[in-house]
Nucleic acid binder design. Structure first.
Lengths: 182, 182
DNA sequence: TTGCTAACCGGAGACCGTCTCCGTATCGTG
DNA sequence: CACGATACGGAGACGGTCTCCGGTTAGCAA
């Protein structure tokens, strides 16, 4: 990759992160290109689909995911608190910008999506937490980890679309947690 | 309202119902106008915003909602089965076309949405079921009916966006139900 | 340094969906 | 039948997506 291409690439990713945070995942890509000081052509050559751009943005995100799961697993307290705490972190991780929860949750099971592998990292982080609780024997028998992702993703999605604040989200996560625990 | 206006109005609603069913809630409105044999101007005069059209489409829906709740309440069986059955019906009601679950669930708490009153009907139907179970004393103390709508709506939303089949939805509804029941 | 070529840029513009404006046509009443 | 109120519909402005290709530049080789 040529140096100027590299510069533009990085610039676009940086700007896109900012624009998505401000305006959500539906923001105009031409706007991103304009702010990055490049033509639309340049943007679309580097990122043919919107999701490719999202993929690049999420590069640093995967490290944060694992790290967050580690912290959650180190949590002192009851199983319920551990699970609930993780769920809240999970919601935070996928709610970086508007439209994120829906996008990430649906990409999780879509092999055609460029961000699927990144979503898998999240799914694996979740699995680590679930497995830990399963070992403790406090989970119901038939708990499927992908289902857990979908449930928590669903809560995050409605919260995102309804612009709910975290205080309204917590009780919903409690219901999900209680439904999973023995 | 003039007779020709009435005719066009009805025609548009009928066609829109069909198009939304085929292509989801994001379908092109010009396409709807074209199929209905009217100009875009006519469509947008009758329905200034997309949601006004949805509102008209849902006219007959409200009756079905109450009816469905009645049937669910008449259900023979355990409390859990009653709740689970209602949840499944609920998901079916809001999943008539792609994009429906998200739209309806977020409109429920949005006073600016033209379809809010219709969503309230659904919320009230849900409340009837929840109240009935509360009377039976099988629900946790702090169950909020709006939260229940959001939870089930969230499950329906991820199912809609991930194109999951009903068999994948059921276990998620079970988790929610179990989290609500004592 | 210079010259060359593959790699890259960027903007004009095609395409699509939303929505408006206003000249024209139609209804239905007197 | 005539006339005013009402409604129609299509041309077109607008904004977003994405492509194509003539022009430019980086970086290497001599």
């Amino acid at each position: 990759m040529r140096a100027d291409a590299r510069r533009n690439y990085d610039r676009i990713v940086e700007v896109a992160r900012e624009v998505f945070r401000e305006q959500g995942y539906d923001a105009s890509l031409d706007e991103v290109a304009k702010r990055a000081g490049v033509g639309p052509g340049t943007l679309y050559r580097h990122f043919p689909k919107r999701e490719n751009l999202l993929d690049a943005i999420m590069q640093s995100w995967v490290a944060k995911v694992s790290e967050t799961a580690d912290k959650a697993l180190a949590h002192e307290g009851s199983d319920r608190e551990l699970l609930l705490n993780w769920f809240q972190e999970y919601v935070g991780l996928i709610s970086q910008h508007r439209g994120g929860p829906a996008k990430i949750t649906s990409a999780m099971g879509d092999p055609a999506s460029p961000i699927m592998t990144k979503c898998q990292v999240l799914a694996q982080a979740n699995e680590r937490v679930i497995d830990r609780l399963r070992e403790d024997g406090c989970l119901r028998a038939d708990v499927d980890t992908l289902q857990v992702c979908r449930l928590v993703g669903g809560v995050a999605t409605v919260a995102d679309q309804g612009e709910l604040d975290p205080e309204a989200v917590r009780p919903m996560l409690e219901v999900v947690a209680d439904g999973l625990l023995k």
